[in-house]
């Protein structure tokens, strides 16, 4: 996920029933749409879940993706969040080699990024950092020279930016056939 990926963010409201994730991911697989990241979470209403799907814009026209998604019976609503108009956040856990002499440099780096040292071992430490995906990318690059042992990212979640003018979030379509 290094470098700018041409992507779309879809915020998909689905019925909270078993198998829905499999219906959505199966649709992406068989239509040849690439998923950059996917996060599923409960919503304020327990009947529904929200999937935040980052779609590789190169792999398929967004219109086909949303239209096909809309045909799934448990899909209630799809909102496209234009990257510039959305607050995107992601969480990363990274374990990095940290011998005694490197520890202070890594700690310093962590404080610049407002990251948190979550675990310290004999020769490594685990850092948690949250924020915009670009911030996570930058942190990863800077930790690279120390030696990254393991890294995990949650995939992004997003909400529309609260603009002073009318929001440009756009309901793509709420109908299906």
């Amino acid at each position: 996920m290094n470098g700018p990926v041409q992507h779309h963010i879809l915020s998909v409201l689905v019925e909270n029933k078993f198998g829905v994730l499999s219906r959505v991911s199966g649709l992406f697989a068989r239509r040849g749409f690439n998923i950059v990241s996917l996060a599923v979470s409960p919503t304020e209403d327990e009947r529904f879940s929200r999937m935040t799907i980052v779609v590789d814009a190169e792999s398929a026209p967004l219109e086909q993706v949303t239209k096909q998604l809309n045909k799934l019976v448990p899909v209630i609503k799809i909102v496209e969040l234009a990257p510039a108009e959305a607050v995107e956040r992601e969480l990363m856990l990274v374990t990095v080699k940290a011998t005694a002499d490197a520890r202070s440099q890594i700690t310093e780096l962590a404080s610049i990024f407002e990251a948190k040292i979550d675990d310290v071992g004999y020769e490594s430490m685990t850092i948690m950092v949250a924020g915009a995906p670009t911030k996570l990318d930058a942190m990863t690059d800077l930790l690279q020279p120390f030696g990254i042992v393991e890294l995990q990212r949650t995939g992004r979640i997003a909400l529309p930016k609260l603009a002073r003018r009318p929001a440009r979030l756009r309901a793509v379509r709420t109908r299906s056939a």
């Binding site: 026209p61 219109e63 086909q64 239209k67 096909q68 809309n70 045909k71 379509r173 056939a177």
Partner: peptide, 9 residues
């Protein structure tokens, strides 16, 4: 078409 996904596919 009754299926919106067919339009422009």
């Amino acid at each position: 078409d009754i299926d919106p996904a067919e339009l422009g596919k």
